[in-house]
Design a protein around this nucleic acid. Sequence first.
DNA 1: AGTGCAGATGCAATCCATTTGCAGGTAGTT
DNA 2: AACTACCTGCAAATGGATTGCATCTGCACT
Lengths: 152, 152
Amino acid sequence: MSQTDRTKTEKRAKRLTGALRGAGVRITRQRAALLDVLAVADDHPDAVELQRRAEVEVPGISLSTVYRTLTSLEEQGVILRHQFEGTPARFEHAEAEHHDHIIDIDTGEVVEFCSERIERLQAEIAAELGYEIVHHRMELYVRAKRADRESG
Amino acid sequence: MSQTDRTKTEKRAKRLTGALRGAGVRITRQRAALLDVLAVADDHPDAVELQRRAEVEVPGISLSTVYRTLTSLEEQGVILRHQFEGTPARFEHAEAEHHDHIIDIDTGEVVEFCSERIERLQAEIAAELGYEIVHHRMELYVRAKRADRESG
DNA sequence: AGTGCAGATGCAATCCATTTGCAGGTAGTT
DNA sequence: AACTACCTGCAAATGGATTGCATCTGCACT
């Protein structure tokens, strides 16, 4: 990470904690640790994994605190919670634009994608039925194409 | 239900139980009851609701049996299990073609829909990334449009 | 820097949907 | 009718997530 990147990240962090404070959310050691961990995560960790990562900064941080913090951050719109099939909920930082997920059912790896055309079609379909979309969820459970693997 | 409809339904039921038997699945009173209940359901009941409905035919049917049967029927491809947000799993008979779901977040009501155009786009996106879709899940969480309601 | 207190923490207990071990029952083949 | 592999009901266990409670602590205000 370059010097300017670091500066930018720190500025965002400051803005973020300011906003949280405004909403009556205190920045404790455990929350700061979780915010750090979430900010640098480029994957989709679950609560236990986040606890493990936060423990570097706050040894002994309890799992209930992790869950409570995640719920609170989700309510503040800071993070997103994803309930994929057959796994505990997984979380990600919410700064980027909306996207959906491709889950490799063999490896558990998650790839993000977004299709404006699909989004448009979804909105049309909902509108035709007299609804407005509050949020949606689209998950593609996939495996690597035949050519990329061995057996079939 | 007309006489011919009833006959058709009964034929399908016979074919179905035959197939299940072939897979080593016994048709017990409790399973027959659940198959009946699922066959006539035009909604998306959860396990407890299915137990309640099956109890008309088999009083005292246990919830574990319901769950075990549902798992077995799902494995046989007879029913589909849907894990919508914040509710226990809900089930539906699998005879129709594939479709996705619109969930009214105010009423819990579920509407089915299918868009070939979206399906095509999904497949394209997966293919471009070197994946083949095993299955997918698309849920639109909606509410009735402003005009249809009162307050905002 | 000190104080007050709303809000946060850790722990253990609890919740809820779902699964499972077990001992007795039954479908369906022989 | 008998045999037995599969099924049932019950109660206990599981696993992810939440919660009650006593204690602690950020942080706004001196």
